[in-house]
């Protein structure tokens, strides 16, 4: 009989692990909280740094899951787990020979940065909202008009002790560059500003895209964090920042403020960790057994990690890691069967 592995989370990480395990002769079962597979990538329009439509990556994964007949329990949340299986919120249990935790991350709630007025002022949106608007084919202001000046603010809910998010969410810098270019392509007459603390272009092709945004798209980069956004009488938004490279305060009115919302740890990580005797990193993400040689293993044999449940990761990193996870699961299954 094939060994059975339960994968908590049916996003990109969970699906990629499932597909790999199935190829290696395992019976994977995906448990997904939402009604559909796909996770966070499902709401995304295009991927950095290549502007590949997100669907071009996601759809084949979902299709293959269907074609290979991999069992998926959607609309089911994992409440507790051990190396022998998971317990669902419904009370049902699924027994297995190993468990992979691929429950991803939670998008930072930008309302918590009250000074930006997200949810209060029109035309203050998050990076995720912008992707949704692009998917719906219509980026416009609340009154239906087109923006003439747009600011993107980096590190909303990242590197910020005020909201208990000390870590860097890693992908927002390049997302800001990508979205700035997309906005400039949509609205060539508009001025687009990026407000950043540092620009962290860690991935292949990122720095090149950053340079292109500056040189070819004339996108302005101001090193300084926006301190507040306020409404103006003409419906625009006033923002304040320091232009730290000139050492002067700076203010301007804009039509649209895009908050690059960070990745934070899931609220239920603690409960999942407690149920299985796992550890949390100080930032609330799951702690791997070892950052170098055991990145996809938990400290507990038989429980594995994939994707952003252990730290903010790009989609490319997540998909690459999925194979490592499947590999580690196979090693484990072989060792216990022997």
């Amino acid at each position: 009989m094939k060994p059975k592995v339960v994968i908590a989370g049916g996003g990109a990480a969970g699906m990629a692990v499932a597909l790999r395990l199935e190829r290696l002769g395992v019976e994977p079962v995906i448990v997904e909280r939402e009604e559909r597979l796909g996770g966070k990538v499902r709401g995304w329009h295009k991927l950095f740094p290549t502007f590949t439509p997100a669907a071009e990556v996601l759809d084949p994964l979902v299709a293959q899951i269907g074609r290979r007949g991999i069992e998926c329990r959607t609309g089911a949340a994992v409440e507790a787990l051990s190396e022998h299986g998971v317990k669902l919120a419904s009370g049902q249990t699924i027994e297995a020979d190993a468990v992979v935790v691929a429950t991803g991350f939670t998008l930072f709630d930008a309302r918590r940065k009250e000074e930006y007025g997200y949810g209060i002022y029109d035309n203050v949106v998050t990076s995720a909202d912008l992707e949704r608007m692009m998917n719906e084919g219509a980026v416009r202001l609340a009154d239906g008009s087109t923006p003439r000046r747009i600011a993107l603010l980096h590190c909303v809910g990242s590197r910020d002790e005020k909201v208990c998010q000390r870590h860097c969410s890693k992908v927002c810098c390049i997302t800001g560059v990508k979205q700035a270019i997309e906005l400039k392509k949509m609205f060539p007459e508009a001025d687009v500003f990026n407000f950043y603390m540092d620009i962290r272009m860690f991935g292949a092709g990122y720095e090149e895209l950053y340079r292109e945004a500056q040189q070819s798209y004339n996108i302005h980069f101001v090193r300084g964090r926006i301190s507040e956004a306020s409404p103006m009488i003409n419906g625009r938004i006033q923002i304040k920042a320091e232009d730290t490279l000139t050492g002067r305060p700076l203010r301007m009115s804009i039509d649209m403020l895009v908050l690059l919302a960070g990745m934070r740890a899931n609220d239920d990580n603690a409960a999942l960790a407690a149920s299985a005797g796992l550890a949390l990193a100080p930032n609330g993400f799951m702690q791997s057994a070892d950052p170098f040689l055991g990145a996809v293993r938990s400290p507990r044999r038989g429980i594995f990690y994939a994707g952003a449940v252990t730290a903010p990761k790009s989609l490319a990193d997540t998909l690459a890691e999925a194979s490592l996870t499947a590999d580690a699961v196979m090693d484990y299954l072989n060792s216990v069967q022997r």
Partner: peptide
């Protein structure tokens, strides 16, 4: 003391950047 982008006349600045877009690539 604030730099007020709204009241500043950006025409010259835009001209300069049009003639020399590479200036915009400065990373400080």
């Amino acid at each position: 003391r604030a730099i007020d982008i709204d009241s500043n006349d950006l025409r010259k600045s835009n001209e300069i950047l049009r003639e020399m877009p590479e200036l915009q690539t400065c990373i400080g």
